[in-house]
């Protein structure tokens, strides 16, 4: 039975991914800052599936606590077979573009926090020579845009870090998957103008889980973002900098 740690468990996408793991018999540890909500989600999944589901607190930006946190979660689970990274924030992009503290907060919540946690988890998985990591990135990381480049650059960093880690972990037989997610209908995008091609969290989680099961390496969710971003990346910078999206 897989022992899986889910980071950012109060995300609706994470919740549905967790439910997939639980249905397949996994034991889970759900972590978020908002522990009250994480606990509700844990109870829900165990009522629905009968799985054992623990929950607890972590803060991606509180680096000093990460080593203890990973240790505690693994202890609670009895082992650590997989980690799902589903935390992140769009942050206040307007503020982030003028206030360096706000910009750094976005970077920490999306990138450096993940670097710290992934480094700790990778060490364990590599030693035991099995396991997996699922990292939720974003199509926003494929090209910097005037509208959300702080968030986008954090995700770009996350993609590159994950890519390198995948190479290293391949030698230990550990599966590392990057998910480049398009727009999903969650609190992150609710009421925001100009969101398009939005999918439901259910569809997102189903596709991500299916990709994990077939051991995909880099997956666009939904698939159509691959050709879209393929084209977006080809637009010459001179033109791209003038576009509005």
């Amino acid at each position: 039975m897989a022992k899986v740690l889910i980071l950012g468990a109060t995300s609706p996408i994470a919740r549905l991914l967790a439910a997939h793991f639980a249905e397949d018999g996994a034991t889970l540890y759900l972590a978020a800052r908002d522990t009250a909500e994480a606990a509700k989600i844990a109870t829900d999944i165990s009522v629905r599936t009968g799985a054992v589901v623990h929950s607890g607190a972590f803060d991606a930006a509180d680096f000093a606590t990460h080593a203890d946190f990973i240790e505690r979660a693994a202890q609670k689970l009895g082992a650590l077979d997989g980690v799902v990274l589903c935390f992140g924030t769009l942050g206040e992009e307007d503020a982030a573009q003028i206030d360096p503290n706000a910009a750094l907060a976005t970077i920490h919540q999306n990138f450096t926090g993940a670097v710290s946690l992934m480094t700790l988890a990778a060490h364990r998985l590599e030693e035991q020579k099995r396991g997996f990591m699922i990292v939720i990135g974003s199509v926003a990381g494929d090209r910097g845009r005037a509208r959300n480049y702080v968030y986008g650059s954090a995700k770009a960093g996350l993609h590159t870090f994950t890519q390198g880690l995948r190479g290293r972990m391949a030698r230990a037989g550990v599966h590392v998957m990057t998910v480049k997610l398009g727009t999903v209908d969650t609190r992150m995008t609710w009421g925001r103008e100009g969101t398009l091609l939005t999918i439901s969290p259910t569809r997102a989680a189903d596709s991500i889980y299916a990709a994990y099961r077939r051991k995909a390496e880099v997956v666009y969710v939904p698939w159509f973002w691959r050709p879209i971003m393929g084209i977006v990346k080809l637009i010459p910078e001179r033109m791209f900098k003038r576009t509005r999206f």
Binding site: D59, N101, T106, R187, W190
Partner: peptide, 20 residues
């Protein structure tokens, strides 16, 4: 570096925002 120096925005996007 610890997070103490960095103000953390807690509003992750937010459903506090309505949609007309």
């Amino acid at each position: 570096m610890s997070s103490a120096a960095i103000p953390i925005s807690t509003s992750a996007g937010s459903s506090g925002r309505p949609k007309r």
